[in-house]
Amino acid sequence: MEEIALHILDIVQNSIVACANLISIEVEEDYANDRLIIIIVDNGKGIEKHLLDKVADPFYTKRTTRKVGLGLSLLKQSAEMAGGSFSIESEINKGTTVKAIYQHSHIDRQPLGDIPQTISILVASNPDINFTYKHKINNNSYYFDTRQIKEVLEEVPITSPEVRVFIHQMLKQNIDMLNRQFKEI
């Protein structure tokens, strides 16, 4: 994985397989404490306690098409090599929370990458799942919620190609604006 945004896209696939219908993604850039925090919360079926220790083991997977499971292991490695940490919490039938913390300025921290593309693809290809995305830079934040989008769209499907392009632009512009506000201070 070359970008943190790709890790996010990958980890969310776990939530989709776990039958979640609400997935919240949060990116917090905390320059004051030199931290970049990624949090993914879903309301899926959860992971049994005795498996939680195993999920970041590359040789553990529940799938049958191949014998390795790299998603969470790669995220853990990516955070740890950038002076950060990885944690996962889960409760059966309640959901799972995955958290990765990076040292923001660390030379080995992967770039955040193309978040708008990641989110717009997830939204367009999973119309039955609601997504929220929060991007916080110091004290400013932007919040995106597909429930608001669906309310506006009414009968127009969220999977329409035009809507995907719109969502992509809206996310990009708002994240760019957060970055500009940060630089102006």
Binding site: Q148, V152, E162
Partner: peptide, 14 residues
């Protein structure tokens, strides 16, 4: 910057 109001306009077109 695009807002939900712009989305409303797009919806009417679509």
């Amino acid at each position: 910057v695009k807002t939900l109001d712009d989305l409303k306009k797009l919806k009417e077109q679509l």
